[in-house]
Design a protein around this nucleic acid. Structure first.
Lengths: 176, 176
DNA sequence: TGTAGGATGTTATATCATAACATGTCAAGA
DNA sequence: TCTTGACATGTTATGATATAACATCCTACA
């Protein structure tokens, strides 16, 4: 569908077009995750840890089978449930998110900071960024309240153009 | 997973817990759709028409294969693409929506009224209601703008409890 | 009346996800 | 120390969702 290596939006995947400090990504998140899970009586076992690491390293949304492939290559199980279980565990514990539009998963970049994330998905380069969703969650909660519905979890995914790909699609005015 | 026939939330599926006039649903929407498509040079062919009707009658989210089954029983094609194509056509033309969390589709209840819908999905009875998403879209657009992202389409799906099922889960206080 | 576009249908296969069960690990209590 | 129960990991097998590729058939219109 698209070759990330040739896409300006993906050429700097470590930015993912939302400002954040890459140096913190993998190690710090991993350390944070461990502490956070321990507090909840949960364990960051080898598969789970490695799965989170894989998502953090990829720094983009990965399908369950992509994750499985990497896990299998490192001596973990070779069957789908291995990946799905680890991914579900991470999601339930706020360490990863599921991007339904892409049938894929990404590491959460702000674990712990209780949040209702909104995702921005570039339709050209497939880059995914996590946007603060507090205001959106508020608006959604209010709309729901009007019809007596209680929101427990929300999926907010926007499809569009990331900064880099906007340049491709709509070149600077005046330049044919 | 759940038997709708025994769920109070589904016992009145024609309400879908969002107030609307059922009598308008099928016929009026269908008529509106025809006009609207003609204006855009699109055709509401038999399969497409019947597919929309099926969604309108079901008055809840249906999987592509559910739709296919009904179409096949009425003499239309028996293969998945038949249903997927009709559903995609309807979605592209604002006559149906895809509910990603359920891998399902619903008829749009307000075609024409250019809208960015938000869906409220009951986790107990699976009822789906379309909530006005204008405020949400606005909040999303603003959050995206901050990181230079241009939103083209958005998926907003809330999982939670519909009014009827809220009663089951959290009985009136004082009644053990 | 020929022809081009679009709609419908097919076969075949890709992709995503989970049910059900067997085995392994480890810590708390008998 | 032994046992047992909870949980994690692994497997096989299958289910569910979705699309690619191509054949046929309408239908508008030059």
């Amino acid at each position: 569908m698209h070759d990330p290596s040739t896409c300006p939006g993906c050429a700097q995947p470590d930015l993912a077009f939302a400002p954040h400090d890459h140096s913190r990504c993998a190690d710090d998140v991993l350390a944070l995750a461990e502490v956070q899970l321990a507090q909840g009586g949960q364990r960051l076992t080898p598969v789970r840890r490695r799965t989170l690491q894989i998502l953090l390293e990829a720094h983009r949304a990965l399908g369950a089978y992509d994750v499985l492939e990497r896990l299998a290559a490192e001596g973990f199980g070779h069957q789908p449930p291995v990946a799905y279980r680890a991914l579900e565990f991470l999601e339930e514990n706020g360490l990863a998110h599921r991007i339904r539009r892409l049938n894929a998963f990404t590491a959460c970049m702000h674990p712990g900071e209780l949040h209702a994330p909104a995702f921005l998905i570039c339709r050209i380069c497939n880059a995914v960024a996590e946007a603060p969703g507090a205001a959106i969650g508020l608006a959604l909660g209010q709309a729901a309240k009007k019809v007596g519905f209680t929101v427990e979890r929300a999926t907010v995914e926007a499809l569009g153009l990331c900064p880099a790909c906007t340049v491709i699609e709509r070149p600077v005015r005046g330049v044919a």
